Amino acid sequence: MPRKIKTIARDIAKFAPDDDGDWRRLDVLLDELWQAGSPEQAIPEMLSVFERYPEEDGHGVMWSLVHGLENLPNYESALLSSLARQPSELGIVMVGRMLNSGATSVDGVSLLLTLQEISSTATSTHIKEIARSVLSRPR
């Protein structure tokens, strides 16, 4: 019997790579989430992974989050809220991809101003550099 989305979402929210740095369990959870249907119900939990591991790509596993989120309706506002709580490399990359697709704002929030704020206020030098890099790309 498939597990309920709330249970899967809770497991995603609690996910941590194992002691060997293995992220495959997250991949399994994401597959399970999509198979359960209505993965948009777990957008906050998925974004919480970016917030807990802001400078990680999970050996490529977190790109599954990027692609999955981008295929869901109305994830953009939640992404900006996540970035306001904890700027993350892949969250910034997603904003850059939104800009590349022609978007300039989400719910009245400027994407460029969001990146500018991150580039000047983030505590991580790496995160600041990623935001500056995305800002410097021609549109």
Rank of each mutant, 00 (worst) to 15 (best):
P17E: 09
D18P: 06
D19V: 12
D20G: 06
D20K: 09
G21P: 06
W23R: 03
W23S: 03
W23F: 05
R24M: 11
R25C: 00
R25S: 08
R25D: 10
R25A: 13
R25P: 00
L26P: 05
D27M: 04
V28H: 07
V28Q: 09
V28N: 07
L29D: 08
L30W: 05
D31Q: 13
D31A: 09
D31M: 09
E32L: 11
L33Y: 03
W34I: 08
A36D: 10
A36K: 06
G37N: 02
S38V: 02
P39R: 01
P39A: 10
E40Q: 14
E40A: 09
E40L: 02
Q41E: 15
Q41I: 04
A42F: 10
A42N: 10
I43M: 04
I43W: 01
P44V: 05
P44Y: 03
E45L: 00
E45R: 00
M46V: 14
M46G: 12
L47I: 13
L47R: 02
L47S: 08
L47Q: 08
L47H: 03
S48F: 04
S48N: 14
S48R: 11
V49L: 00
F50M: 07
E51A: 15
R52D: 11
R52Q: 13
R52C: 08
Y53F: 15
Y53L: 01
Y53T: 01
Y53M: 04
E55A: 10
E56R: 03
E56G: 02
E56H: 02
D57E: 14
G58Q: 02
G58S: 02
G58H: 01
H59F: 12
G60A: 09
G60V: 08
V61Y: 01
V61W: 01
V61F: 04
M62A: 04
W63C: 07
W63N: 12
S64V: 00
V66A: 09
G68H: 11
G68T: 12
L69E: 06
L69P: 05
L69S: 05
L69V: 05
E70T: 07
E70L: 06
E70W: 01
N71K: 14
N71L: 08
N71F: 05
N71H: 14
N71E: 15
N71R: 14
L72F: 00
N74A: 15
N74H: 14
N74S: 15
E76C: 06
E76M: 08
E76S: 11
E76P: 05
S77C: 08
S77N: 12
A78W: 11
L79S: 07
L80E: 12
L80N: 08
L80F: 07
L80P: 10
L80W: 05
L80R: 07
S81Y: 04
S81L: 11
S81A: 14
S82H: 06
L83F: 09
L83S: 03
A84I: 06
A84H: 13
A84Y: 11
A84S: 15
A84L: 11
A84G: 10
R85Q: 12
R85M: 08
R85N: 12
R85K: 13
Q86V: 12
Q86H: 11
P87I: 01
P87Y: 02
S88M: 03
E89N: 04
I92C: 03
I92Q: 04
I92V: 14
V93A: 13
V93C: 07
M94W: 09
M94H: 10
V95W: 00
V95R: 00
G96Q: 06
G96W: 02
R97I: 08
M98T: 07
